[in-house]
Amino acid sequence: MERILSLQDVRFTYTPDDADGRHAVDGVSFDMQAGEWIAVVGHNGSGKSTLARLMIGLLFPQEGTVGLFGDTLTEDNLWEKRSQMGMVFQNPDNQFVGATVQDDVAFALENNGIPFEEMTLRVRDALRQVKMDTFLDHEPQHLSGGQKQRVAIAGALALRPRLLILDEATSMLDPQGREEVIRVILELREKTGLSVISITHDLEEALLADRVVVMNGGRKFAEGTPQEVFLKGESLTALGLDLPFAMRLSALLGEQGIGTEPGTMTERKLVEQLWTLRSNR
């Protein structure tokens, strides 16, 4: 397995001149293997968005290093590294640069000097992957939030990135839009094995990841598979994080004397346990 991202003891503060200034990111380290999906969760101000900005070189750490695809990220190799990554932000409207869907998808390609013939192929290909290929000439104001985010993902995919960073990409969407975006990501991973980092506070989304990193006050609070992390239950709620719905329900059922397996994360598993509750005995 190839290590595509490695943070080593990264520290960052927005107020470097202030000696007592709080570090937005304070000594965080973790590695990511190619093909992994990592979810970074934490409540507002936990430093998770700053972390995303450090990964793509929008900010540089005051201490520690950010390693990408085997090299340390520096001012010199910044653009070359960026051309291998894609990032999708929170607000669907504020990242739509082009006048139409196809122009927007082509934007990153234009910036990287891809020839025209290649561009048309890649734009179509990327839009097909997010199921927006029938919207080529649509203008952003006629698209829903979920559609705009899918176009943003296509814009990132057109560059054929090795790493896709989603910075709260679903948080401004309605449930349907969120569903659309997540389904697209799941399909992409299945087909292309794309590595994904999703910064999120939606725990249902975090459950889909291979690994979860919990941030609190700029520090890494916990790291592990979703099962491992969410079993910490109480200590997560103390940080202001919610638990997945199925876990909360199973805890409440437990209080009523209906025992379900601890660590039931998904609704489907919970339902399965409930309807087989009697027959098992």
Binding site: Q95, V97, E110, N111, A156
Partner: peptide
Amino acid sequence: VAMEVRGYRGGEGRTRYR
């Protein structure tokens, strides 16, 4: 920020989609 992340560095070396 979104433009920078997508590699926008001014007009130098850019190709045209339209």
